[in-house]
Nucleic acid binder design. Structure first.
Length: 496
RNA sequence: GGGCUGGUAGCUCAAUGGUAGAGCAGUUGCCUUUUAAGCAAUUGGUUCUGGGUUCGAAUCCCAGCCGGCCCA
């Protein structure tokens, strides 16, 4: 009984290993089996002709996730990429031997089954199994069927378990794939060319961020993982690729948080002979298309529920356009803000509850107010324009007011979703901006990029879209980790 | 980096400093249209790790490991 050392009934791993050993001893190895399917689950369900039981035969395969055993028959469910489908296995249909084998299956096993579709008396389209085969033995048990897997650490470290048992995770992460796919189609339809530029670079430019450093042995040089694709893509504008984009992994050697993963995905788009206003139309068409065709709100609107604020974000309404300076003035309540001496700016920022580093430049104090006090309140799609020139060295200065830039920052749901510029194509101004920035931030100047600009870059609009944040917004996720299949965690720990 | 908080059976969770429990999963029976199927019986624990306090620690204290939230 239970006290003999050979009782392994409590050890699910051992029980399953024993079943596998018995199968192999009996001449069947599930890991050598194969199976031809005719449908995925949703396709099979769709193939059922209403009112015509047993008219359509299908072959389906997937992981066994529900078993309801009623003695001489059982209802089970298998799960594939499209979701679950129910199978009905009846002893007097499959025969005694096959039925006995079927009864030995465990939750988590991967099986294939063939049979005709029928509708049960409770109305569920089901495969009446004629033949089935075990295609892979699961030696480990599945997490609990009702509550799923909820330990966040295990969800991230063993994402495959999360995907098996948590339907919302499965849906959310598949939705991400459709978002990216939609973006590709959208841009290709508009004659944009997708390109791939190097991840390893001698100079990590195009943004202000700490890069990862690695080493190339054969060349004996340190290289950086890119922190942006901007400078490469602009070289392609010089080369005559007039409309280019890259959906690429970006690496920034900074903290990990609900909004930050050290590697993330960025779309960058450049369109020659356009400008930041052209980018406004492009991004608006892109996002409304995503909501309409990928998210497909139930009520047919273009509204998405924003969990944090409880508001509906309406992609179909007017997209507000407002100048950075006006937002700052109204938030500080100080019409003379930009003329105030630094000490007064610091005092006002601190009175708003912000922590200000006294070594900051004045524009950094202002921008701290913008990013902490203003941006989070911009829930509806908002183009913030006319940003101060210090904020982006790669954009064109405004012709009427050279203290501001011809750019926008699209903010939705309190998050910066897409910055866009009229791209700087004057090599001399660009050099000046770089050198000024290098002084303060010791960012390396990319001389080859400046050389490329001297060959002439067409005027262009350019835009970056953080795909992860966009997916947070579109899927209503709480954390960037929920829209990245395998988010970064400290190695080790957790899973056995 | 700082503050708060968590780690108990395969999973989801309980347990005044006093014999570590439940549900699901597992095992053994019964059940030929179930929907978290049902009924009966039953197995299973290095309470994250290492110290300390105590007659006695899952529980209190310290350190570490791995998470989560907030802040920087």
């Amino acid at each position: 009984m239970s006290d003999t050392p050979s009782d392994i009934s409590h050890d699910q791993h051992a029980v399953r290993r024993q079943k596998l050993a018995e199968m192999r001893a009996g001449g069947f190895d599930p890991f050598r089996a194969s199976f031809a399917t005719t449908h995925f689950s949703a396709g099979a369900l769709g193939a059922y002709v209403d009112g015509q039981d047993n008219a359509v035969s299908v072959s389906v395969a997937g992981r066994l996730v529900v078993i309801r055993d009623m003695g001489k028959s059982q209802f089970v469910k298998i799960l594939d990429q499209q979701g679950p489908i129910q199978l009905y296995v009846k002893k007097d249909v499959v025969g005694d031997e096959a039925y006995a084998a079927f009864k030995k299956l465990d939750l988590g096993d991967i099986i294939g089954a063939r049979g005709a579709l029928f509708k049960t008396k409770t109305g569920e389209v089901t495969v009446r199994v004629e033949r089935s085969v075990l295609l892979a033995k699961a030696l480990r048990p599945l997490p609990e069927k009702w509550h799923g897997l909820s330990d966040p650490e295990q969800v991230y470290r063993q994402r495959y378990l999360d995907l098996i048992v948590n339907a919302e995770s499965r849906a959310r992460l598949q939705r991400r794939s459709r978002v990216v796919s939609h973006i590709r189609r959208f841009l290709e339809e508009r004659s944009f060319i997708e390109v791939e530029t190097p991840v390893l670079e001698a100079t990590a430019g195009g943004a202000a961020a700490r890069p990862f450093v690695t080493h190339h042995n054969a060349l004996n040089v340190d290289l950086f993982l890119r922190i942006a694709t901007e400078l490469r893509l602009k070289r392609l504008l010089v080369g005559g690729f007039d409309r280019v984009f890259e959906i690429g992994r970006i690496f920034r050697n900074e903290g990990v948080s609900r909004r930050h993963n050290p590697e993330f995905t960025m779309l960058e788009v450049y369109e020659a002979y356009s400008d930041y206003r052209g980018m406004m139309k492009l991004v608006r068409d892109l996002l409304t298309g995503l909501v309409r065709d990928v998210i497909k709100p139930d009520d047919g609107s273009l509204k998405i529920r924003h969990a944090a604020s409880g508001q509906d974000i309406d992609f179909g309404g007017e997209w507000r356009e407002v100048r950075y300076k006006d937002l700052v003035l109204s938030t500080t309540g100080d019409a003379g803000w930009f003329q105030r001496p630094k000490a007064e700016k610091i005092a006002r920022a601190e009175s708003l509850g912000l922590v200000v580093d006294p070594t900051w430049e004045e524009f950094e104090i202002t921008n701290e107010i913008f990013s902490k006090k203003i941006e989070p309140t911009l829930i509806q799609p908002t183009f913030v324009t006319h940003l101060p020139k210090e904020l982006c060295p790669l954009a064109k200065l405004n012709a009427e007011d050279p203290t501001v830039l011809d750019v926008f920052e699209l903010t939705i749901g309190g998050m910066e979703i897409a910055p866009a510029y009229s791209e700087q194509n004057d090599p001399d101004v660009q050099r000046e901006m770089f050198e000024h920035q290098a002084g303060g931030e010791r960012q390396n100047v990319d001389q080859d990029f400046l050389l490329a600009l001297e060959h002439g870059m067409p005027p262009a609009g350019g835009m970056g879209v953080g795909i992860d944040r966009l997916c947070i917004l579109l899927t209503g996720a709480e954390s960037i980790r929920d829209v990245i299949l395998f988010p970064q965690l400290r190695p080790g720990g957790g899973a056995a």
